[in-house]
Each structure stands twice: as structure tokens, then as C-alpha cells.
């Protein structure tokens, strides 16, 4: 079992190392991740949302529906934990 796990892990690592070939280098300002929508955020966020912290501006203003969905996820997890761990009363299933 452990040997199979080790082989699977090493194969996955080899695949990932093969994939690193195409990634941009460390600290590249023109990498694909920072060249499409993020310059727009950096340039316009302060003017449009009056928040100096760009991360907060994007989190709570541009992508506020995303954050609302996140709170729904946390709420569902809390309800799930409560339902799973509650003490059962007599004669009640679940």
C-alpha cells in the first residue's frame, strides 16, 4: 500500500515538474496572471470604490457576490456540523 502510494505520488510530482516548464519565472511582471484584468483593478479600484486597499476593494465590491456565496458556504458547513454532532433524543432518528 505504501509503495503504491509512493509511486503514485512520485508520478504526480513528475507530471507537475514537467508542467513547470511552461510557467513564467519568479516575479515576472508580465506573466499571464497579471496581464489581463488585474492592471485594470490596480488602476481603477481606488477611484471607483474609494478604498486604498485593492484586495478589499475587489473582495467586497467588484466580487461581492462571490463573498456572499462564501458566507453561504460557511453557513452551510456550520449547520451541517451542528446537525451531525447534536445529541439524539430518545426515539428520534437521524
Amino acid at each position: 500500500m505504501k509503495v503504491i502510494a509512493l509511486i503514485a505520488v512520485i508520478m504526480t510530482g513528475a507530471l507537475l515538474i514537467y508542467g513547470v516548464e511552461d510557467m513564467p519565472g519568479w516575479g515576472d511582471p508580465n506573466s499571464p496572471a497579471s496581464s489581463y484584468v488585474s492592471p485594470q483593478y490596480i488602476q481603477e479600484a481606488t477611484e471607483k470604490t474609494a478604498t486604498p486597499n485593492i484586495v478589499t476593494a475587489v473582495l467586497a465590491d467588484y466580487r461581492s457576490y462571490d463573498t456572499m456565496g462564501e458566507t453561504v458556504v460557511v453557513f452551510t458547513a456550520a449547520i451541517g456540523c451542528i446537525l451531525m454532532l447534536r445529541k439524539k433524543r430518545n426515539g428520534e432518528g437521524g
Binding site: W26, G27, D28, P29, A33, S34, P52, N53, I54
Partner: peptide, 12 residues
């Protein structure tokens, strides 16, 4: 992957 060399934290 979001790091840029010589840049500062994204707070204006």
C-alpha cells in the same frame, strides 16, 4: 504567481 519582482503590497 501573483508576485512581481520589486513591487509592493497592493495598498495604495
Amino acid at each position: 504567481i501573483g508576485v512581481k519582482a520589486g513591487a509592493t503590497v497592493p495598498i495604495l
